[in-house]
Amino acid sequence: MDWLMVILGALIGAPLRYLIDSTVQRRLGTGFPWGTFAVNMAACTGLGLLTGAATEITVPEALQHLIGPGLCATLSTYSTFSFETIRLTETSAKLLAAANAIGSVLAGLAAAYLAGHLAAALVG
């Protein structure tokens, strides 16, 4: 049953990643990988919310599998983040590459942390 929930979450997460990424990139341009940044922050926030809620209340295992390894894992994209960061260095945009690498990690950690505390406060 758990693997079905992971598959269901992935069926939502993967197309959602594509739609968000392409929409954000189209609106903000291609100089910086804002689309990948946005999906990764959404995934960090979602996983933080799930984790924060699970520390305060019992979250059904099926829902944890749907949101965690299903939705959030397929919504986020470490490989695209890595590729785009390397691509920025190859196009002499080393400052943007550093901003992407450092900013993505710090913002992702902050999003997960804050979302976790928010969820714990709301359901606790």
Rank of each mutant, 00 (worst) to 15 (best):
R27M: 07
V123W: 11
G48E: 04
G46Q: 07
G116V: 02
S104T: 06
A10T: 10
C44L: 02
P60T: 15
E61I: 11
L95E: 02
A121T: 07
Y113P: 00
A54N: 14
L4H: 11
V59M: 13
H117D: 12
L4K: 11
Y18S: 05
I20K: 02
I7Q: 09
M41N: 05
L49M: 09
L19V: 10
E56M: 15
E90L: 09
Y113S: 04
P15R: 00
L16P: 03
G35D: 05
T77Q: 10
I86Q: 07
L63E: 14
L95A: 14
A119S: 13
I20P: 07
P15H: 04
T80S: 12
W34G: 01
R17K: 04
N100W: 10
L49Q: 13
C72Q: 12
G13K: 00
F81D: 04
A110Y: 01
A73F: 12
F81T: 01
I20Q: 09
R17D: 01
A121R: 11
G31V: 12
W34V: 00
T91L: 13
L106Q: 01
H65T: 11
F83S: 10
T74G: 03
L49Y: 02
M5P: 05
L88K: 05
S79A: 10
L71N: 03
S92Y: 01
T85M: 05
F32E: 09
A111Y: 00
A73N: 12
G31S: 13
G31D: 15
F83W: 05
Y78M: 04
G116A: 05
T91A: 15
E56F: 09
F81L: 01
A14P: 06
V39S: 08
G29Y: 14
A99I: 04
A101G: 06
L16Q: 05
R17V: 05
T36L: 07
A99R: 02
Y18K: 03
A98L: 06
G108P: 00
G52C: 15
V105T: 06
L49W: 08
D21A: 07
E61N: 09
I20N: 08
A112D: 03
K94S: 11
A93Q: 15
V39T: 09
Q64M: 13
L96N: 14
L28V: 08
G103T: 01
H117R: 13
P60N: 15
P33D: 11
S79R: 00
E90Y: 02
G13D: 09
C44Y: 01
C72L: 03
L4D: 06
Y113L: 13
T58F: 12
D21H: 12
M5R: 11
L11A: 13
L28P: 06
G103W: 04
C44M: 02
R26S: 10
T74Y: 10
M5A: 15
A54F: 11
S76I: 04
V59N: 09
